[in-house]
Amino acid sequence: MNTRKVIVMPLIAIGIFILEGVASLQFGHAFFGDQRFFIPHFLIVMLVMMTTFYNRNMTLIYAFILGIVFDIYYTDVLGIYFAIFPFIVYLTDKFMKVLQNNILLVGLVTVFNVMLTECLVYGFYVLIGGTDMAFTTFADQRLWTTILLNLAFFLVLFFPFRSFLLKLKKSDGM
């Protein structure tokens, strides 16, 4: 039995899920006050890295499970992240087939996916009437801070998590 795959990886996913909630409550207000919003998308960072350095099919399973749990726990609309997380894994897989998997390109793909997620969620809420925020206000108060802080999380996570995923991939014989 591969304990990294069966025990450690789900614990990492649960830890990042919890960290995402704690970070939004504790650090967003401390950094930006009431003028700017920080939306952590640490799960997207994790899913991008898993897709790049591990196994797409296993990452899709994590994306579906984490998406539905995220919807149940954090959102009022069920299904939005359940659809977005696997879509992000699919896009990342397609990007990484033509790009090298170095820190710069994986970071750019991560930033793109965070932006895409934020814009899709914003667009969905505008479509159903859940928000009346103008796009310029959204970009100024929410989008750029979200990108910067998720990029910082990516930079902190990149080397240790990449090393873990490559060891996991090697132990699986892939």
Rank of each mutant, 00 (worst) to 15 (best):
M1S: 15
T3E: 05
T3G: 04
R4Y: 10
V8K: 04
M9A: 09
I12Y: 10
A13D: 02
I14F: 11
L19D: 02
G21C: 04
L25K: 13
A30G: 03
A30P: 01
F31G: 08
F31T: 09
G33E: 13
D34H: 11
Q35W: 14
F37H: 10
F38P: 00
I39W: 07
P40A: 04
P40Q: 03
I44K: 01
L47Y: 09
T51S: 15
T52R: 01
F53K: 07
Y54W: 15
R56F: 07
M58C: 03
M58G: 12
T59Q: 00
I61G: 11
F64L: 12
F64G: 00
I65G: 03
I65H: 02
G67S: 02
G67V: 04
V69M: 08
I72R: 02
Y74W: 13
L78G: 02
G79V: 05
I80G: 06
Y81S: 08
Y81M: 14
F82K: 00
P86E: 06
F87G: 06
F87T: 11
F87W: 07
I88L: 13
I88E: 01
V89P: 07
Y90H: 08
Y90M: 12
Y90L: 13
T92C: 06
D93S: 15
D93W: 10
F95T: 04
F95E: 02
F95R: 01
M96F: 09
M96D: 03
V98N: 10
V98S: 11
V98Q: 12
L99M: 15
L99I: 12
N101G: 08
L105Q: 15
L105H: 09
L105E: 12
V106T: 14
G107M: 09
G107I: 08
L108R: 03
V109Q: 07
V111S: 01
L116M: 15
E118W: 07
V121Q: 14
V121N: 14
Y122C: 13
Y125N: 09
I128M: 05
G129H: 12
T131D: 10
T131S: 15
D132N: 11
M133E: 12
M133A: 10
A134Q: 13
A134C: 05
F135G: 07
F138D: 09
A139G: 10
D140P: 00
D140G: 12
Q141M: 13
Q141H: 13
R142D: 05
W144P: 00
W144T: 14
T145G: 01
I147Y: 06
I147P: 00
L149W: 02
A152F: 10
A152R: 01
F153N: 00
L157V: 11
F158E: 03
F158L: 01
P160L: 04
K167P: 04
K167Q: 15
L168S: 06
K169M: 06
K169V: 07
S171E: 14
M174V: 15
